[in-house]
Design a protein around this nucleic acid. Structure first.
Lengths: 186, 186
DNA sequence: AACATTTTTTGATGTATATCAAAATCAACT
DNA sequence: AGTTGATTTTGATATACATCAAAAAATGTT
């Protein structure tokens, strides 16, 4: 089954008509390691699911890349900003491994919301779950030391550490790679 | 007009039946400065609006209070966590001025979502807007220095500074009051 | 107005993390 | 297996911010 539909069904009921409509608008494609999904400011991003693969979201600050999150299999993600404002995201999304992707564009999603208002319950649940995740992330950045943030990451997304290099992890944690190296040495 | 309804209408259409149902479930009350709205873990929080007043949300860390956000007039807020999970928030909410409040409980809100599914569009929009705000907050904590975070606060919520003491502001920014004082001195 | 309480500022010193430079290790390719 | 480039670690030093203590200023109360 289309993994977007599979993810949607975790949040609420989907009529078979809505399911068919989503099916017809789902894009399926493959990307190579280092490819970009979205160039910031170019394309409206959308919700998507990795059947297989790994991605990072990042933006530029003083010419340097800053990672904001990582995505693995069996998650639904995308930028909320374009869904909410209909404007492009400032985030770039890059594949860190060869990946198989199912995606739905913002335009299609908004049309689906119009045609099948029942989808708004699922959209609400997804946005609410993202709020909870972002709240935890803010608190972690607000009060935890570098080493505590690293421990939190190990606890919450342990598999990431074996798939992503330490430079990317350090950037996500908001510290330098040197500091992360020293933290790991204990 | 009931300011909860007023806020809801900023996000989408509300049928007159739904409006009446919300009206009937809205609680209206007054609170004194220093009162608490919710004690964490006790009561399920809800969406609410300040007709007049000022609040802070905070939690405890190592016995000390840490502020997570402030709320003023003409905003809708509450913790998403209880709405999403139906479990109490870890946050405490305290009034920083004598306040007039309109509120709707999580139980009532969830019943309204069931009775008037159209409300899910509004709920989705609200959650999506909160996502955008939380994303900005995370980025601020991720990459900005103490002084930059202070400047961002001045830019985004200038009126807060004249209504809230510097201890509360410093806690919100994730720095000590002494550091904030030195930042302000330039 | 005088006193008590709260809030803000100042000073001295300590600590976590950044920066810069280089070495060591690992991975990829021929 | 040897060479090249990427990743990770190590060392020396700098900086932003914390901590502790106290003074100064502002605010509230009788």
């Amino acid at each position: 089954m289309n993994p977007i539909i599979q993810q949607f069904k975790r949040y609420g009921f989907l009529s078979s008509e809505a399911e068919t409509a989503i099916e017809g608008r789902t894009k399926h494609f493959f990307k190579k390691k280092h490819d970009h999904f979205l160039k910031s400011g170019q394309v409206l991003s959308s919700y998507f699911v990795l059947e297989k693969g790994l991605i990072r979201a990042y933006f530029y600050r003083d010419g340097k890349e800053v990672n904001t999150w990582f995505g693995e299999e069996n998650q639904i993600f995308g930028s909320i900003l374009p869904v909410y404002t209909n404007r492009p995201s400032f985030e770039n999304i890059q594949f860190l491994e060869d990946s198989e992707v199912y995606a739905i564009s913002v335009e299609d999603l908004n049309e689906l919301y119009r045609m099948y208002p029942e989808l708004n319950l699922i959209g609400r649940k997804i946005a609410e779950e993202v709020c909870v995740i972002l709240e935890e992330r803010s608190i972690s950045l607000h009060i935890e030391s570098a080493s505590e943030r690293y421990q939190s990451l190990i606890r919450l997304q342990p598999r990431l550490l074996s798939r992503i290099n330490l430079g990317h992890i350090a950037s996500y944690l908001g510290i330098t790679q040197e500091t992360l190296s020293r933290i790991r040495r204990y």
